[in-house]
C-alpha cells in the first residue's frame, strides 16, 4: 500500500442553498481535500461554518453546485453504500434488537440473514457488546448505543466512514473512553475515516491530519499533520504530550480568530 493511496477526494466542492434565488446561501466554497487509505482525517471549524453541509455533500446526500466528490474513483452520488456514517444521534431503531440494528446495512445489501447475523455477532463479540445482542437500544447506556451504531457502520464494510460529532452528546468521561475505543476499532478494522468535530482535543487525539475550515462559506484554511502520524497511540495518553498542547493552542487561535473577523466585517 502506498502512503498516498487515496480513497476519497473532493475537488473544488461547492454547495449553495437556493442557488439562483435572492435567498441563495453559499455554505461550502471550493473545498479540495483527499482522504488516504487507513487514515483518520478530522475537519474542525467554527460553529455553523458549514461542516455538516460538507459532511452531507461528502456522503452524497445533497447535490454539489460545483466540483466533485469521488469515492474509489466513482462520483459519490453514484456510489451509494460506499460511505457509512455515524452522527451525534445513534439512530438505532428502537423496535429492533442490537444485533438486528447492526445487520441493517447488510440487510439493505441483500446479504442472507444468517450470514448477516454471523458477521454482526463477530463484531459484537469483538467490541464488547456480548450479552446485549438481543437487548433493545432503550436498555443500553449512551456509550453502548454509540458503539452499536459504529458496529452497524462497520458491518457493511464501507470504503469510507464519516463521523459527524459522534461523541458530543455523551458525558466527558464516556466521550474520552469511547474516543479511545473507536480509534482502536477503526484502526483494527483498517478503515478510512473523516471525523467532523468542533472539539479540537478530539481532533488532535484521534486524527492523523486535521483540516481547519473557515467561517461560512467553509473553505480549507489550513491542514496540520499530527506529530504521531499513524503511530499507535491512545487518545487519552496523547493528551499528556507537549505536542498535543502546542497543536491545540495553534488551532485554537485559528478558530478563535475566525468568528472575530466575521464580527468586525473582515470576512
Amino acid at each position: 500500500m502506498s502512503a498516498h493511496d487515496t480513497v476519497l477526494t473532493a475537488e473544488a466542492a461547492r454547495v449553495v442553498y437556493n442557488e439562483g434565488t435572492d435567498a441563495a446561501v453559499e455554505a461550502v466554497r471550493d473545498i479540495t481535500l483527499e482522504l488516504r487509505r487507513g487514515e483518520i482525517l478530522a475537519l474542525v471549524g467554527p460553529s455553523g461554518c458549514g461542516k455538516t453541509t460538507l459532511f452531507n455533500a461528502i456522503a452524497g446526500l445533497i447535490p454539489l453546485q460545483g466540483g466533485a466528490v469521488s469515492v474509489g474513483g466513482d462520483r459519490v452520488e453514484d456510489a451509494k453504500g460506499h460511505v457509512g456514517y455515524m452522527l451525534q444521534k445513534d439512530l438505532l431503531l428502537p423496535w429492533r434488537s442490537v444485533i438486528d440494528n447492526v445487520t441493517l446495512g447488510l440487510e439493505i445489501r441483500g446479504i442472507a440473514r444468517t450470514e448477516a447475523r454471523r458477521r454482526a455477532q463477530t463484531l459484537i463479540d469483538r467490541y464488547g457488546l456480548s450479552g446485549f445482542e438481543n437487548s433493545k437500544p432503550a436498555g443500553l447506556s449512551g456509550g453502548m448505543r454509540q458503539r452499536a451504531a459504529l458496529m452497524r457502520t462497520l458491518a457493511f464494510e464501507p470504503e469510507v466512514i464519516l463521523l459527524d460529532e459522534p461523541f458530543s452528546a455523551l458525558d466527558f468521561q464516556t466521550r474520552i473512553l469511547l474516543q479511545s475505543d473507536v480509534k482502536r476499532i477503526i484502526r483494527e478494522e483498517g478503515r478510512s475515516v473523516i471525523l467532523i468535530t468542533h472539539d479540537i482535543g478530539e481532533a488532535i487525539s484521534m486524527a492523523n491530519r486535521i483540516v481547519v475550515l473557515t467561517n461560512r462559506p467553509a473553505t480549507v484554511k489550513s491542514v496540520y499533520e499530527t506529530p504521531w502520524g499513524s503511530e499507535e497511540i491512545d487518545p487519552v495518553a496523547v493528551r499528556e504530550r507537549p505536542e498535543y498542547q502546542e497543536l491545540f493552542s495553534t488551532i485554537w487561535q485559528e478558530l478563535e480568530l475566525a468568528p472575530r473577523q466575521c464580527e468586525i466585517g473582515l470576512t
Binding site: 452531507n56 452524497g60 456514517y85 439512530l91 441493517l104 439493505i108
Partner: peptide, 18 residues
C-alpha cells in the same frame, strides 16, 4: 419519522421501498 433516519437509509443505499 426522523429525517436523519431516512438519510441514513439513503447512505446505506436503500431503495425508497426498503
Amino acid at each position: 419519522i426522523d429525517p436523519d433516519l431516512i438519510r441514513l437509509m439513503k447512505s446505506l443505499g436503500a431503495s425508497p421501498w426498503q
